[in-house]
Amino acid sequence: MPKESLSSLTEPMYYVLLALTEPLCGTEIMEKVRVLSHERLSIGPGTLYTMLAKFEDNGLIEPADHPSPGSGKRKNYLITEKGAWMLKAEYSRLKRQTEDGKDIMEALG
């Protein structure tokens, strides 16, 4: 796959990075994203496969040295320092957006 640089995170990307704060394999990531988003978001394996390759190319995740117990021989991934930095930046951006709109939204009822 050609290398594509990531300047911002989409909603599914944000949740996948959130999920990868612990080592997980593909199916576990899909399940955790569903749980984290309170079943609002589901990611298909094709979408996840492309996303993981993109994240790995950009150094946001790496193969995990210590796989999760339930993953068997499947490849596990874990967020890198760069990935964690990007996740924090996205979290701050979303938080600022919410705070900026807070007063207006409260006034609207």
Partner: peptide
């Protein structure tokens, strides 16, 4: 089971 490709733009 979710669709294989859930990112419609992709």
């Amino acid at each position: 089971v979710p669709d294989i490709e859930t990112d419609s733009r992709e």
